[in-house]
Nucleic acid binder design. Structure first.
Length: 154
DNA sequence: GCCAACGTTGGC
DNA sequence: GCCAACGTTGGC
C-alpha cells in the first residue's frame, strides 16, 4: 500500500534524504501513525515524501519502506529532542520503519496543485484538520502525484 | 504570527 | 469516564 510521510524540511529535507539514502523514520509520537508503521507498512511499499511547514508545502519526491518497524531509539535517549520518559526497554512504546530514498521529483508538487488536481479530492492529506504525519494513500492518488512530480515544470 | 483542529493529560 | 485545559500541528 502506498503511503505519505511528512517532514519539516528545516529539520530533514529531501536533499538530506538524498545524501543519506536510508534513514530510520524516528521521532513519530502519535499512536495512529505508530500503528501504521508497526502494523501496516511493508517492505517495498512506495512512499510520497512530503514537506510540511515549508513555503510552499508539497510532495518533494519518493521513498520506499526498506525495513520493518523496530523500536525507536530516540525515545530512550534523554538527550534527544524526542525523548519520552515513559518509554522503557521493556516497553519502548514508539517504533520506526526504515525508509530508502528513491528519487527527488523533477517538479515539486505543491499542496495548492494537489488541491486542484482532479481525482485527489478525497485524499486524506487534503481533508480539513488532517495533521497525521503518516497516512495511507490510494494507488490512484499515488500514481496521479507521481505523474505530476515526474513531469516537466509547469 | 494567527488560529482551527486535534491529541493528550489530569482532576473529579 | 467525562471534559476542560493545555500543547502541538501546520496551513495561511
Amino acid at each position: 500500500m502506498p503511503w505519505l510521510i511528512k517532514t519539516e524540511p528545516d529539520c530533514y529535507s529531501i536533499d538530506d534524504f538524498a545524501r543519506e539514502k536510508k534513514t530510520r523514520w524516528t521521532g513519530v509520537r502519535n499512536y495512529q501513525a505508530r500503528n501504521f508503521m508497526r502494523d501496516s507498512m511493508k517492505v517495498g511499499d512506495p512512499i510520497l515524501f512530503y514537506h510540511s511547514s515549508s513555503e510552499p508545502p508539497g510532495v518533494a519526491g519518493l521513498a520506499r519502506v526498506s525495513a520493518a518497524a523496530d523500536w525507536d531509539r530516540t525515545a530512550l535517549d534523554p538527550k534527544d529532542q524526542h525523548f519520552d520518559a515513559k518509554a522503557t526497554k521493556e516497553n519502548p512504546i514508539w517504533m520506526a520503519v526504515e525508509v530508502a530514498f528513491v528519487q527527488k521529483f523533477a517538479t515539486f508538487v505543491e499542496l495548492g496543485t494537489l488541491r486542484t488536481t482532479k481525482g485527489l479530492e478525497k485524499m486524506a492529506l487534503l481533508q480539513r484538520g488532517q495533521r497525521l504525519s503518516i497516512q495511507p494513500v490510494t494507488e490512484a492518488e499515488f500514481a496521479a502525484i507521481v505523474k505530476l512530480g515526474e513531469g516537466k515544470g509547469r
